[in-house]
Amino acid sequence: MAMLSISRRNLITLGASFFAAGALAGCGDGKAAPGSAGASGKTGSGYKIGVLQLVEHGALDQTNKGFVAALDESGIAYTIDQQNAQNDQSACQTIASKLVNDGDDLIFAIATPAAQAVAGATSDIPVVGSAITDYAASGLVASNEEPGGNVTGSSDLTPVADQIELLRQLLPEAKSVGILYCSAESNSMVQVELAEEVLEAAGIAHERYSVSSSNEIQQMVESMVGKVDAIYAPTDNTIAAGMATVSMVANENKLPVIVGCDTMVEDGGLASYSISYYDLGYKAGEMAVKILTEDANPADMPIEYLSSDECQLIVNQATADALGVDISMLEDAQIV
């Protein structure tokens, strides 16, 4: 199946209370990860890098691993303070303030709410983001081409049109699609609206099903049974973290779910055209190294994207078997 292209220029643009000190310390391990200092790197303990990850789920974990791998392979010396907000916005703000007060040389923010919290806490420390769909629409930069401030990074804009085309190929009889996402995540709306445009052009009925928290996922998916023929779930952090619940309910009710990324397929979704979140994090790590060692200015560093050629078709065999969906035509698919 030919890959459909999506221009980034066609994107749809759109304190907090402190935890107890012991609880905050439990959010990250603060471990040191020293590398050998490069020619332009610092000596001794090296650069101080803070990491704020919104929540634990496969895609964001892979983004984090890719970032660290890029640092290691660059040869710079550094210490890293890993913090996880457990999908709590007030925790994001608390941790962001901590990293700024620690005087980090650079902060890596994984997912939109994490980046928004860090950007709100400092206009001086360089901030590199990742697993963020549209930086401009999220208010993080002046424009994706010319950020203009202290924030830059890599975008996880996925090939939404290809994912909908995949849905049509695997489920040719589908007449209606429910779009499942979290209303609290601004970047999910970018993907939702892109999906609606493609479904509209294909003449497929569609309806939004939004949750405000993970506690609503099971009930929302149950409410879709009998109303839609398939579900589309974009790369939404709340849905990704709760994908086991989504797939449990959907698969029991023979409701196929086309998802936004590979880890969501691994957690029970039927299929996806997915970017590699490891590669996405690695790209962000390369940007961080340039800022730290080459005096690159985030203001002048355009948001970077993975190309459609770097996407992987991935299918869950067990889910396909449970749903009775024929995947034999997907010759180049990675089967999990």
Results as ranks from 00 to 15, higher is better:
residue 178 G to Y: 01
residue 89 Q to W: 08
residue 135 Y to M: 08
residue 75 G to W: 08
residue 208 R to C: 03
residue 123 S to T: 13
residue 128 V to W: 03
residue 319 T to F: 07
residue 244 A to R: 13
residue 90 S to I: 03
residue 168 R to G: 06
residue 296 A to E: 09
residue 45 S to V: 15
residue 212 S to I: 07
residue 192 V to P: 01
residue 173 E to K: 15
residue 248 M to G: 00
residue 166 L to S: 00
residue 268 G to A: 10
residue 210 S to R: 04
residue 335 I to V: 15
residue 9 R to Q: 12
residue 319 T to W: 06
residue 235 T to M: 09
residue 21 A to S: 09
residue 258 I to S: 10
residue 321 D to F: 09
residue 332 D to L: 09
residue 278 Y to T: 05
residue 155 S to L: 08
residue 286 E to L: 12
residue 178 G to W: 02
residue 54 L to A: 05
residue 253 N to E: 10
residue 83 Q to F: 01
residue 21 A to M: 05
residue 194 L to G: 01
residue 34 P to L: 14
residue 176 S to G: 04
residue 285 G to P: 03
residue 276 S to A: 10
residue 137 A to F: 08
residue 305 Y to N: 06
residue 307 S to D: 11
residue 16 A to F: 06
residue 253 N to H: 14
residue 251 N to V: 13
residue 264 M to G: 04
residue 155 S to D: 05
residue 147 P to Q: 10
residue 230 A to P: 01
residue 78 Y to I: 00
residue 198 V to F: 07
residue 333 A to H: 08
residue 58 G to R: 10
residue 35 G to E: 12
residue 304 E to A: 15
residue 165 E to M: 10
residue 275 I to E: 02
residue 203 G to K: 12
residue 228 V to I: 14
residue 168 R to P: 02
residue 265 V to S: 09
residue 55 V to R: 02
residue 88 D to R: 14
residue 39 A to H: 03
residue 10 N to A: 08
residue 181 Y to I: 03
residue 230 A to C: 03
residue 96 A to G: 08
residue 265 V to Q: 08
residue 268 G to M: 09
residue 286 E to N: 12
residue 70 A to S: 07
residue 224 M to S: 02
residue 10 N to P: 00
residue 76 I to Q: 01
residue 254 K to C: 00
residue 198 V to H: 03
residue 150 N to Y: 10
residue 190 V to N: 06
residue 101 N to L: 13
residue 209 Y to F: 15
residue 304 E to K: 13
residue 43 T to P: 00
residue 76 I to K: 04
residue 295 D to V: 07
residue 29 D to K: 14
residue 98 K to R: 15
residue 163 Q to C: 07
residue 289 V to N: 05
residue 226 G to N: 06
residue 77 A to H: 02
residue 93 Q to V: 13
residue 148 G to D: 05
residue 20 A to M: 07
residue 237 N to G: 06
residue 156 D to P: 04
residue 171 L to K: 01
residue 40 S to I: 07
residue 213 S to V: 05
residue 40 S to T: 14
residue 223 S to A: 15
residue 115 A to E: 06
residue 114 A to I: 06
residue 18 F to E: 11
residue 218 Q to F: 06
residue 110 I to D: 04
residue 272 S to L: 02
residue 35 G to P: 04
residue 227 K to Y: 03
residue 192 V to K: 01
residue 148 G to N: 05
residue 126 P to I: 03
residue 95 I to C: 08
residue 93 Q to C: 02
residue 149 G to K: 09
residue 17 S to I: 13
residue 227 K to N: 10
residue 236 D to H: 12
residue 315 V to Q: 11
residue 102 D to K: 15
residue 157 L to P: 01
residue 297 N to L: 12
residue 155 S to M: 05
residue 66 G to S: 07
residue 109 A to D: 11
residue 41 G to R: 11
residue 149 G to F: 01
residue 255 L to V: 05
residue 176 S to P: 00
residue 290 K to V: 00
residue 5 S to M: 09
residue 179 I to N: 03
residue 119 A to Q: 15
residue 136 A to I: 05
residue 301 M to L: 14
residue 5 S to I: 09
residue 43 T to Q: 15
